[in-house]
Structures are given as C-alpha cells and as structure tokens.
Simulated scan of single mutants.
Amino acid sequence: MTYLIAFLGAALAGAINTLSGNGSAITLTILMEVIGLPPDVANGTNRVGVLGNGFAASYGFYRNGRFEVTDGRRREMYQIVGITTVGAVLGVYLSLITSNAVYREIFRYLLIVMLGVILVKPKRWINVPEGEHFISRWLSVPLFFALGIYGGFIQMGMGVFFLAVMVLVARYDIIQGNVVKVVVVTIYTVLAVGIFAWRGLIDWPIGLLMAAGQMVGGYLTAAYASKHPKAGVYAYWLLVVVVLGAILKAFWPG
C-alpha cells in the first residue's frame, strides 16, 4: 500500500509539475510522512522523481511541437537555462550546509504574495501575448539566478515562481512558459541528483518508483496540454488551486 501511494502520488505530482508547479509538496510529504525518510534524504530522493518527470514532460512537449520557436526566442531560452542552472548549483550546495527551516518559513509567506499576483488580472495569465517580448538581461540575470538558487535548494514551489516570471515578466504564454520551466528544471536536476547521490542522500528504490510515477503523469499531461485549446485556462486554475493548497498546508496548525 505504501508503494502504491508513492506511485500514485508521484503521478499526480508529475501532472501538477508539468502544468503549474509545487508537485514536490506532495512527494516530499509522502517521502517524509508516509515512508519516514529523514528530511535531507527525502530532499535528495525527491530529485530523482523530479528528473524523471522532467525527461518525460520534455519529450511530451517535443513530440507535440512545443519546441518549435523562433531563433530569437530559442536564444533567450538558452540564456534562461544557463543562468538558472548556475544558480541551482549554488542552491544545491546551500541545501547541504543549511537547515531548511528558515527557507520554509520564507516560502509560506511568499506563497501569499504569489496568490495575490495570480488572482489580480487573470487575463495576463490566460491570454496569449501578441508578438515576441524579450526580457532585458539586466532583469533576467538576477531573476533567473535567484530562481535557480531557490530550486537547487529546496525545489518545492520552484515551478510556481518560475512560471510567474515567465508569464508576467518574460511575457510567454502559460503553456510555452511551462515548456521552458520543464527544460530548466530537468537540466539542473541532473546536477542535483549527482551531488545528492555523491553524498549518499538518495533512497534509490523509492526514488526510482516515484520517478516512474512522475514520468507517467508528466508525459500524459504534456501531450494533453500541447494539443488542447483550453490548456492555458486549465493550467491557470490548476495553479490557483495548487497555491491555495500549499498555503493551507503551510499555515495549518501542527
């Protein structure tokens, strides 16, 4: 029953990660509260599932034409990937030497701010922007570097914050923003898994089981989102539900 819960929870997390973010709130809870792993091992083991999710979702988006972008947009995506990955390496290092307690306290208050940002003028998230709007390097470098640090450190909530920057600042439509998010997270998670494995902080049997679940959820969701005309609307409301759920969990007594 424990393994079944782990697999199904991972599949749900893979679907959530692909269209919005914060699926790690589910998988980390399973790893720590159901399976009983210590927080540092749960953090490392969770990255195996995130990596499987990333590969499957990336392939799903690729198979359905979501990687076909202009040269200008492709160059910007490469820059975003590079900057975020460098930040993530620093974030992984910090996760090995620092307690998560302070960052989780900051995280739950950031969620309230994020919910306000999401709910004000929902059309900014749902409407596809006309033309291409390229983000200034003066803004992109610190923003995506900070996002990389956060993702490398704890991962939970990374997708929510990254997607907000992609849609509201970089002016991507919500599905294409998810494509970039999935690629970025996959690349830096390869490094994270290597570092956590080197430190002996991965439970491989559980990690691989949850990776299988997240791959199923991630691929199916990416294939659906790439083709369905209302996928952007669904992604927006899923994001709202995910953030609300994360806030309730973060502030729930005990």
Rank of each mutant, 00 (worst) to 15 (best):
G151V: 05
Y234V: 06
M210F: 03
S226L: 11
N43A: 09
K227G: 04
G54Y: 00
E105A: 09
V81W: 15
Y150M: 08
L51Y: 04
V183H: 05
I118N: 07
L12W: 10
P38N: 12
F7G: 03
G91W: 15
V81R: 10
L139R: 10
G82P: 12
G14F: 15
I135E: 00
H228P: 01
N46H: 06
G157K: 02
P38E: 09
G72P: 13
W204D: 05
Y172A: 02
A231D: 01
G54L: 00
F67H: 13
Y62A: 13
R66A: 14
N17R: 09
H228I: 01
M210A: 04
F107H: 06
D40V: 13
L111V: 09
G218M: 08
S95Q: 13
P38F: 00
V184D: 07
G232I: 05
I83N: 11
V50M: 06
P129E: 07
V141L: 06
V216A: 08
I154V: 12
F7E: 02
T27H: 04
L191Q: 01
I106L: 15
L111H: 15
M77D: 07
G91C: 13
R66Y: 15
T85E: 10
R108C: 10
N22C: 09
V242F: 14
N22D: 11
A101I: 12
L4C: 11
G245T: 01
V240I: 12
T70R: 14
V92L: 10
G49L: 02
V183G: 02
S20F: 04
N127W: 10
V233F: 15
G159F: 13
D40N: 13
G218Y: 01
F145Q: 01
P129R: 09
A25T: 13
V167I: 02
V113W: 15
G245D: 08
G87D: 12
G151N: 01
W252N: 03
A235I: 05
G152P: 00
I247R: 07
M215W: 02
N46K: 05
N53G: 11
L37N: 07
G14M: 09
F145R: 00
H133D: 10
G207E: 08
V165T: 02
Q79D: 12
V182E: 01
A197N: 01
A6W: 15
A10Q: 05
L4D: 06
F162D: 00
I206M: 13
Y78I: 12
L147S: 02
L110G: 15
W198A: 04
L248R: 00
Y219P: 03
L28M: 13
I135M: 08
F162M: 12
P39N: 08
K181S: 06
A197F: 10
A246R: 06
G23M: 06
T98M: 08
Y172G: 08
G72S: 06
E68A: 15
T27K: 02
I112S: 06
I154F: 13
G23L: 08
E76F: 12
L201A: 00
V242M: 14
I83G: 13
I202E: 04
L115A: 11
I112L: 14
L90W: 03
Y188M: 04
L90D: 06
V102E: 09
V193Q: 03
G54H: 00
Y93M: 11
G200P: 07
R75C: 10
G9K: 04
I126H: 08
W252C: 10
G72A: 12
